[in-house]
Simulated assay, not measured.
Amino acid sequence: MKLYSYLSFNGNCDAAFKFYEQVLGGKSGDRMTYGASPMADQVPEGWHDKIMHAQLTIGEQEIMGADSTLEYYEEPKGTSVLINIEDAGEAERIFEALAENGTVKMPIQETFWAARFGMLVDQFGTPWMINCDRAG
């Protein structure tokens, strides 16, 4: 069994996944627009270039996502994508990059459980937690 994070976007999935690919060092995988799908004739006007499905591989992990039409889109609540990183400097780099034009909920810092931990919502509305465990 595998578990994946599947992210919903309000029309900016393509930009978000290009950003995540750059920041996280991922490799873009499957990507389909609504206009290239078998249901292209049922898509709302202006949505043919929006993403119906996108995949990004980061190491051995994957995240997926899509643009949700306005009647189905809901802002994420009660969940976050957690990135656990072994290197404190890399944790800070990723945190700062994801926080650009976003909202920091908890600045990245040392905590009683982690060498570095921080929470943010990025410019695309995705909530993230960045964690770097304390050394052994």
Rank of each mutant, 00 (worst) to 15 (best):
A66C: 09
E45G: 13
G35F: 05
E74C: 00
A91G: 08
G25L: 01
Q109F: 11
M52F: 13
N10T: 08
E100F: 02
Q61D: 12
P107S: 12
L98I: 06
M39R: 12
K105F: 14
E100W: 12
T33C: 15
S80F: 03
A114Q: 00
Q42T: 11
E110V: 08
P127F: 00
L82G: 09
E96P: 01
R93N: 08
G65V: 08
A88H: 01
S80K: 02
G46H: 07
A66N: 06
C13K: 06
T111W: 12
L98W: 05
D30R: 09
T57M: 07
N84G: 06
V81M: 10
G11H: 00
L56K: 01
Y34Q: 03
M64Q: 10
N84D: 15
G78K: 15
T79M: 12
G26N: 03
M119R: 09
F95Q: 01
E60C: 00
M32E: 09
A16T: 03
I94N: 01
K27C: 10
G59L: 02
P76I: 04
C13A: 13
N12Q: 13
L120C: 03
G25V: 03
W113C: 12
L24M: 14
N10C: 13
E90M: 10
K77Y: 03
T103L: 11
L98G: 01
V23N: 06
S80R: 04
D49I: 02
Q61H: 14
Q55S: 15
M64V: 11
F95W: 08
A114F: 12
G46A: 12
R116Y: 06
L82S: 14
D122K: 01
N12A: 03
G11Y: 03
S68H: 07
R31C: 05
G125F: 14
G26L: 11
T126N: 15
Q42Y: 13
V121N: 11
